[in-house]
């Protein structure tokens, strides 16, 4: 009997596939452009393209691994950014304003979580609705006009260097904490179990409703962290901030190999996918390719990643093993409402 955990290659297939694509891309781009393979450009990729995207995608990885989805992170990002700007303009101390923004972002996430935990409604619908609500609020309170001008010290969040650029450090801390959370704590285990067998978790005495609330709250909180980077970089808070970012985050998570049906996630895959997407954005800008192509290429890559993985799994497993990452629609899981409600 084996007791030692060994490296299961197939668990990492999709991440490694992406890593391969990334390597090819890096080689091609360095041939085409001398400016690509420079330390300055790589810092630019990490700081301006990847940092906020990875932070959002880490939160999304947790949400998707519960068999849920969070379409509201872009809206939470916008609304908490506006709260931040109002607080700063009202003369609140920067640490306080930041704490307020993070707290309100987490609270918005918790609202999603409460709705998901207490109603038998698909999280897709719930967060689609809350996304509109939060975005709508952002437009109402700003009257649709961007809020320019933040205190100089606050802008350091984006410009500052502390051995590494601060956004990169923030993303690294978030990723590190997420890795520990997911692999070394009960919370990480329970989050995954929500996706693979929520009912079993409930039977074993775990408060699954609270667990769900905490996952969505974390996703909201991380949207708040991302808003710090973005509003400091643009020196602006606006109601349209972050729109579409939830889709990029979802794409990165799924491309990385996390199952949309829940129960299995890979932060490594999410990170590689975010890096790949960032390199594509940077590369296309360098080659002065139209921004419209970005969308096209990201979509093709997402399809490639899931189709290749599915083909491989079909070949490997005659019996029904893992589903392909994109194979299942997220199901609403509200087993905490009690299995005796099934008849309702």
């Amino acid at each position: 009997m084996r007791n030692k955990r060994k490296f299961h290659f197939s668990e990492y297939f999709q991440s490694l596939l992406l890593l391969g694509v990334l390597l090819v891309l890096v080689v091609l781009l360095s041939i085409y452009s001398d400016a690509f393979m420079t330390g300055k450009n790589w810092m630019n990729i990490l700081k301006n393209h990847m940092a906020h995207q990875l932070i959002l995608a880490v939160g999304m990885t947790f949400v998707i691994s519960t068999a849920g989805i969070d379409l509201s992170v872009g809206s939470i990002l916008a609304l908490s950014g506006i709260i931040l700007a109002f607080a700063l303009n009202a003369g609140m101390a920067i640490p306080l304003a930041v704490a307020l923004a993070l707290f309100s972002a987490a609270a918005m996430g918790a609202v999603n979580g409460l709705l998901v935990a207490n109603f038998r409604i698909n999280p897709l619908i719930i967060t689609l609705g809350s996304a509109s609500v939060f975005r709508g609020l952002a437009i109402i309170v700003t009257g649709g006009t961007p809020i320019y001008g933040m205190p100089q010290e606050f802008l350091q969040l984006a410009k500052g260097d502390y051995w590494l650029p601060i956004p990169v450090l923030m993303a690294a801390v978030v990723l590190g904490a997420a890795l520990v959370l997911s692999h070394c704590t009960k919370w990480g285990r329970y989050t995954l179990a929500l996706g693979s067998n929520c009912e079993a978790l409930r039977r074993l005495g775990v408060n699954v409703a609270w667990q769900k609330v905490s996952v969505y709250a974390l996703s909201g909180f991380l949207a708040g962290v991302a808003t710090l980077i973005i509003s400091a970089r643009l020196n602006t808070a606006e109601a349209t901030a972050g729109s579409g970012m939830e889709m990029n985050a979802i794409a990165a998570v799924i491309m990385g190999g996390t199952l949309l049906s829940g129960g299995k996630s890979t932060l490594f895959g999410t990170t590689v996918a975010c890096l790949l997407l960032s390199v594509i954005k940077n590369g296309l800008t360098m080659l002065s390719v139209d921004a419209q192509y970005q969308e096209f290429i990201i979509g093709m890559l997402l399809l490639l990643a899931v189709v290749v993985t599915d083909l491989r799994q079909k070949r490997l497993k005659r019996s029904g093993g893992d589903a392909a990452p994109g194979a299942a629609i997220p199901k609403s899981c509200s087993c905490d409402a009690g299995s005796d409600k099934k008849t309702v």
Partner: peptide
């Protein structure tokens, strides 16, 4: 209880399942 449907987390290993909820 050993449930009829077993109540296992299929993606996790034996130890994770035995200690699920009581880690």
């Amino acid at each position: 209880t050993v449930y009829q449907d077993l109540s296992l987390d299929d993606y996790r290993d034996v130890a994770a399942n035995i200690f699920l909820g009581e880690e």
